[in-house]
Design a protein around this nucleic acid. Structure first.
Lengths: 98, 98
DNA sequence: ACGGTTTGGTTTATAATATAAACTAGTTTA
DNA sequence: TAAACTAGTTTATATTATAAACCAAACCGT
């Protein structure tokens, strides 16, 4: 019998977790902002936000701003809940019982 | 410029993290105990503790007990420190600033 | 107005990782 | 003594993460 809950594999990824963590704070952010804050390569970020979108953790909208393409990411209710559940589950692993 | 510290990839793995978390509590445990507590398959556990050993996070000693092979795992100082650093680093991701 | 550079990405190929399946070696039980 | 079980390891495969290559359009100097 296991002591540990399975961690949401979508969030148990450094980059995706960072993205969600940021979006939980700011609600909405540009691709370039996320790229800078996470220090990720554009390619990696592109792939990972796509996965978050497929899971309905975020919404992605594309528009043009000052002549340049702009990709906006916004967290969903599902995403917030998933993050909260992940944090809750992870505590089992981090809080060592003496 | 990145807001997030890189997470120790050796610990950012569900099974290895569970193993280290257990060993931080109990100091020393049998393979079978870890297998039961983590609900891992034997093969997976075998591979993962080997990696922890290679990183010097744990020590592995093999002996016989009641005619059966017994693999004991014990956490090292390095392992404890790595765990503490991991937990510290992870807080950046979990503690959302309002 | 053209060639090179920069912005803002996506797609694709490869490297790394996790996991399961198959195997080994020996023990117990019927 | 054959089948089933204990306690693992090794190997093959599936999944994931990451980087490299690419694309389209905009800007910038000459």
């Amino acid at each position: 019998m296991s002591d540990f809950k399975d961690l949401d594999p979508l969030l148990h990824s450094q980059l995706r977790l960072a993205v969600i963590s940021l979006l939980v704070s700011v609600k909405e952010a540009e691709f370039t902002f996320l790229k800078e804050k996470t220090n990720a390569t554009a390619g990696n970020l592109s792939v990972q936000i796509q996965k978050l979108k497929d899971a309905n953790y975020i919404e992605i909208t594309k528009q043009f701003k000052d002549n340049y393409p702009q990709t906006m990411c916004k967290i969903t209710k599902t995403g917030i809940e998933a993050f909260e559940a992940y944090v809750r589950d992870l505590r089992q692993y981090l809080d060592v019982k003496k």
